[in-house]
């Protein structure tokens, strides 16, 4: 319950935070702290220094870019996301209420969730399905990467120690799009046993012209299921086509197992919820 002792610095600018990260291997960023503090209370994480970026104005806010996409500042809380134009994306409306509870959604940040990269966090599934971009800052400049490929392992990402995740770029809502998130929760922790986000683009004649499938809880990191997307595109989204595509959601990935869900059950739940998410997304697109 009591974290191990650490030094604390409240950063007054992104540059200051980046400077500390560059010079102190033991420094760790904290924003909302909803993922990090529970680990620290159990002393599973014992950072020597916390750099609090929670009050940096340049990391706050949701704004519309010139191309219609949304730039969501890393410090945007889940609750704020629901009060932003991002709610026009159905998958966001689905996924946010599935995350933890009101208290966590009031304090937990989008950037924190992405950077922490819990293998069973809900939000990354939606970001993968939406083909979101991540804006990353370091003292050498700013770079953008796709969410796809960013999550690399349990609590491991493409973020270097001296970088800060500054924003998440969400696509502009499209008239031909439908999206949804479906999951089954582990009752005690509230984390998904399997969670699948689906985005589909449906053209004339009901043809599926594009798809994004993000999966969480199933493997050691959230991933984008290209196999499912490829199988879906070009079909008219019949029940059979959806089921056939959903069946590919696990592939040859190593499936996680614990007392709540063995490999077989978890894999089966990934398939069921892939199908449900795709069907719900298709229904919304039509």
């Amino acid at each position: 319950m009591i974290p191990a002792a650490f030094d604390y610095t409240r950063a007054t600018s992104v540059e200051e935070a980046l400077g500390i990260l560059a010079s102190d291997e033991g420094a760790k960023l904290i924003a909302g702290g909803q993922s990090l503090l529970p680990l620290m209370k159990l002393r599973l994480a014992q950072p020597a220094r916390l750099v609090d970026i929670g009050r940096l104005p340049e990391l706050r806010g949701v704004s519309k870019l010139d191309d219609g996409r949304l730039s969501v500042g890393a410090l945007t809380t889940y609750a704020e996301l629901m009060d932003s134009p991002a709610v026009h994306l159905a998958v966001i409306r689905d996924v946010v209420p599935a995350i933890a509870d009101v208290q966590v959604r009031n304090r937990g940040t989008i950037g924190g969730a992405v950077a922490h990269a819990d293998p069973a966090a809900d939000l990354p599934a939606a970001l993968l399905a939406l083909d979101a971009e991540l804006v990353i800052q370091s003292s050498s400049g700013t770079r953008s990467v796709k969410a796809d490929g960013f999550f690399q392992g349990p609590f491991a990402t493409g973020l270097a120690h001296d970088e800060i995740l500054a924003a998440v770029i969400l696509p502009a809502p499209r008239g031909d799009a439908g999206s949804a998130y479906a999951s089954i929760q582990q009752r005690a922790s509230g984390y998904p046993i399997a969670g699948v986000a689906a985005v589909v683009f449906v053209g004339a004649g009901g043809l599926v012209e594009g798809a994004g499938i993000g999966v969480t809880g199933v493997s050691d990191h959230p991933y984008r299921a290209h196999e499912v997307e490829d199988a879906l595109v070009g079909t008219t989204g019949t029940a059979d086509a959806v089921a056939a595509a959903a069946a590919l959601v696990v592939g040859d990935r190593e499936v996680s197992a614990d007392i709540h869900a063995g490999r077989e059950y978890r894999a089966a739940m990934a398939v069921v919820h892939a199908r449900r998410a795709i069907e719900a997304a298709l229904a919304r697109a039509r």
Binding site: A261, G262, E264
Partner: peptide, 10 residues
């Protein structure tokens, strides 16, 4: 089906 009550090895 192939499922066991343990849902596969945990």
């Amino acid at each position: 089906g192939s499922g066991s009550a343990k849902g596969g090895e945990a």
